Simulated assay, not measured.
Amino acid sequence: MFAKLYFEDYTEGDTRETSGRTITETDIVLHAGQTGDFFPHHMDAEWCKTQPFRERIAHGTLIFSVAVGMTASLINEVAFSYGYDRLRFIKPVFIGDTIKVKVTIKEKKPYKKPGMGFVTELVEVFNQKQECVMICEHIMLAQLKPV
Rank of each mutant, 00 (worst) to 15 (best):
G13F: 11
I28L: 15
T15L: 01
S73E: 09
G117P: 03
R56G: 02
G83N: 01
Q51E: 07
I105C: 14
H31I: 05
V29H: 08
I63D: 09
N127H: 10
A58W: 05
L74P: 00
E12D: 03
Q34F: 05
Y84E: 03
L62Y: 02
R88P: 00
L74M: 14
F126R: 01
G69A: 09
W47I: 06
Y6N: 10
R88C: 00
A45P: 13
K102I: 10
F64Q: 08
M43R: 14
Y111C: 05
R16Q: 09
E17C: 15
L62S: 09
M134C: 13
K113G: 01
G33M: 13
F89K: 08
D27E: 12
Y82H: 12
Q128V: 04
P114L: 01
Y10T: 09
H41G: 03
F94W: 00
K112L: 13
P52A: 13
V125D: 11
P110N: 11
F38M: 11
D85A: 00
R21L: 15
P40D: 15
K112A: 10
T22I: 12
K4R: 12
T71R: 00
R56V: 07
A32M: 12
L62E: 05
F38Q: 04
D97L: 01
V78C: 05
D9E: 07
V66T: 13
P40N: 05
D9P: 11
Y111I: 00
F39E: 11
K4Q: 13
D97K: 02
M70L: 15
F2L: 05
A58L: 02
I99D: 06
R16A: 13
